[in-house]
Amino acid sequence: MFQAVHRVAGAFERFKEGLKVLGVLDAIKMHPESVRPLMCHEPSTLTAGVMDHRFHILLSEVGSYRRRTEEVVVPFWRDYLQDVEDQEGPPELGTILAFATASAMANTCINCLKLPLLETYDDFKECMDFALGNTQGFGRQ
């Protein structure tokens, strides 16, 4: 009770007083639903498209052998995200996000996930499923 209510009560009252100065508090009270998206977090569904936009893909130099291999793997990554979204059961998209940001296989200083450079989607999928299914990362259960 202290942490959630009493400790922040003073700051909350100052916030409300600030909103009163320009009449914003009254407007909020009159139209609470129009202000809700600005003041309250609304959880959104994690989709393959959202996951794809969460990751910025860095490729090697144009013309290099490694770049050609990486360009083959990028569609594998996107197909894998879509497959995970479409299937029932583990792994889930949230598992991939947690893996990429909290696993020892990822660079946790910059949240970098290095994808396996494989020639076929089946090999890529098998490798990703194995990695996601066999890591707990930083003591997660």
Rank of each mutant, 00 (worst) to 15 (best):
R36L: 07
R14S: 13
R66I: 09
L38K: 07
P91H: 00
A48N: 09
P32M: 06
L22E: 11
Q82W: 02
G49P: 08
R54N: 03
Q87P: 01
S60D: 13
E88K: 04
V24N: 07
V72S: 06
R78Y: 12
L22Y: 12
R66L: 13
L93C: 11
R36G: 05
G94Y: 07
G63K: 01
D83E: 12
D26L: 12
G49C: 01
P37N: 06
P91A: 05
L19I: 01
F76Q: 08
A48D: 11
L81T: 04
V35M: 14
R14D: 14
A27T: 08
Q82Y: 12
D79E: 13
L25H: 12
H53Q: 14
E17P: 00
R66C: 08
L38I: 09
Q82N: 14
G23N: 09
Q87L: 00
M51E: 11
G94L: 08
I57A: 13
H53Y: 14
L59H: 14
H53E: 15
V72K: 08
R14N: 10
I57W: 12
T45M: 15
M30D: 15
L22G: 07
E42P: 00
I28S: 04
L93A: 05
V24L: 15
T47V: 03
V24F: 14
E85Q: 12
V50N: 10
T45D: 15
Y65C: 05
G89H: 09
Y80V: 07
V73A: 04
V35L: 13
K29A: 13
E71Y: 02
M39C: 07
G23F: 05
L19H: 01
K16V: 06
H53D: 14
Q82F: 13
G63H: 03
V72D: 09
R36W: 11
L59P: 10
D52V: 01
T69N: 03
E88F: 08
H53N: 14
E70H: 03
R68C: 00
V50P: 06
M30H: 13
E42T: 02
S60Y: 01
R36M: 09
M39G: 02
R66H: 10
M39L: 11
G23I: 05
E61D: 14
K16S: 04
H41P: 00
S64C: 11
E42N: 05
P90D: 06
E88V: 05
V74N: 09
T47W: 05
L59D: 09
S64M: 04
R54S: 00
D83A: 06
